[in-house]
Design a protein around this nucleic acid. Structure first.
Lengths: 312, 312
DNA sequence: CTGAAAGCGCTTACAG
DNA sequence: CTGAAAGCGCTTACAG
């Protein structure tokens, strides 16, 4: 148990003992057993992270932020992909609870109260990522509504007469962006405009399809807000195929500012979202809670930035 | 301990006992403690997965395959991003070893023998993903060399006189593709052709830069093999910016067949790689080994497919 | 089919 | 600064 002490905090042990222990550890290739440590200390050094998708680069970068924050502190992640399904989210939360994680980081609100109570009972702290919505709970994100509003206002200011909207997945964040966007159009005296919505998962390919559908429904459309950059890229490709000049004939605006947006031809106007920072700061908040140094602020709004480029 | 039995395998217990146990479990919201189970049974139901990158969609899809295979069997993943660094890989392997994983799945060969011995000593089985190289070890993948060869042969057959090559990251798999590609050019009586290589991480943006560098070095270049689709997309964007007609003035070929390749304008010729299947089959192989039913074959070659489209 | 005993490898809390 | 004792919550192996 002097060994146990030396491994956890070398300063608790005399230099002589430390040296002998270090030597033995090296000679034997000894690796402490975390299961035993977890059992004895009631600290697993595991953090459960739930994201709605991994094919969306946004969440991959969020995970990178989380990892960069918790890795140096010696925590490992249990990463779960909910596929935007509340049921799957509940299932993953219970499965992870068996591993006694020290905390949870979740992107996408959990609607089902069943799990909420499960969690409360478990006492495992949870920080929401992206959604600022559940007041009174820990959250790091930004206002999807304001971001959508910024885009609507931009298109109106740019002179769009009949802007359209295309969206996939229709998760709550997308719908919040839409709400802000529509509000901006209203404020600018524009109608709600044509919209093509589908619950299908988002993809570049789908962007092509939705753009065609939009133009079929509203041939006089002169701008389109795509609920994310993948869709925007597909829309751009489709315009190129149809010989529609972007932005002259049709302005295209995306969302997230994924790496390709800046270098597409034309480059894509979009909203840069602080996804890496959301992951990092949410993880930092969680670690502070776990380690008993909870921040006074329970919500952090990281903001966003409209990036105007060539496409609209 | 009848409870323990009922939870692991209900058939071991009488229906009456089972019913009472189920009722109690529900009433209490009881969740078994995996740390205790791991400690007592020497089975963690944890699998360590090491990939070189998560910003590359290839590995994200590989992880999806792994997850879809091991999830139903009740295993959780510890996912580590090595960032193409052998040192980081070694570090992650030791860190994960402390969690006593039942197995490892690794993309990218581990060069450092130090860890190899560590692993051997631990007795934790490991299956390589993508690389078929280490004979005598478990592996699921395909021949990068042959895939590169198929591209070289295709460009030559298509009439390219001076094909170029651009590549980033320069990991072993990329270099194997290059070797096969160069061999095909040689066989077709073409010189090795201009090449722009950089160890920088791959990105769409970098594709733009490398294409410009290639054309600066070899203005008479009439085709380019980009070591992956991200680079190919960047190259395509850059051609559009420079008003270079693809494929008339310059043919572009990528690698992986990421979702956007099929819908770009023009659509991108590439090699479809079985990345989801690599993950799934590697996981299946590992599970069989872990569960004492090791397959007789220790290597599975999943092949690849050249997908000829508009860009070259 | 059910149960009492021992132990997995650590950590905690308490003595020295 | 170091050590003996007890226990974390399960599972294994052995009796009944």
């Amino acid at each position: 148990m002097t060994v146990s002490r030396a491994l956890r905090d070398p300063s608790l042990v005399s230099p002589a003992a430390r040296a002998r222990i270090d030597a033995a550890v090296h000679a034997l290739g000894y690796i402490p057993n975390r299961a035993a440590s977890t059992l004895a200390s009631a600290r697993s050094k595991l953090i459960g992270v739930l994201v709605p998708s991994l094919s969306n680069a946004v969440f991959v970068e969020t995970l990178a932020g989380v990892q960069d924050c918790v890795g140096p502190a010696g925590y490992q992640l249990l990463i779960g992909n909910t596929g935007y399904s509340p049921a799957r989210q509940a299932q993953l939360l219970s499965a992870y609870l068996a591993h006694a994680p020290d905390g949870f980081l979740v992107a996408g609100i959990d609607d089902s109260n069943a799990i909420r109570e499960h969690l409360k009972a478990s006492g495992v702290p949870l920080v929401h990522m992206f959604d600022l919505v559940p007041r009174g709970e820990w959250a790091v994100g930004f206002s999807q509504r304001k971001a959508g509003h910024a885009i609507g206002a931009h298109l109106a200011a740019r002179g769009a007469r009949r802007p359209g909207f295309i969206a996939a997945q229709l998760d709550p964040r997308t719908m919040q962006r839409r709400a802000g966007y529509r509000r901006a159009l209203r404020e600018a005296g524009l109608g709600p405009g044509p919209e093509i919505l589908t619950e299908a998962p988002s993809s570049v390919d789908l962007g092509c399809t939705l753009l065609r559908a939009l133009l079929a429904q509203a041939p006089d459309c002169d701008a389109v807000f795509c609920c994310n950059d993948d869709l925007a890229l597909g829309a751009l490709f489709e315009c190129q195929r149809l010989k529609i000049d972007v932005p002259r004939d049709l302005a295209i605006v995306g969302f997230n500012d994924l790496p390709f947006a800046a270098v597409a031809t034309p480059s894509i106007t979009t909203v840069a979202t602080p996804r890496y920072a959301v992951g990092f700061e949410a993880a930092r908040m969680l670690l502070r809670i776990v380690e008993g140094d909870a921040p006074r602020q329970n919500r952090i709004d990281l903001g966003f930035e409209l990036v105007v480029r060539e496409s609209g």
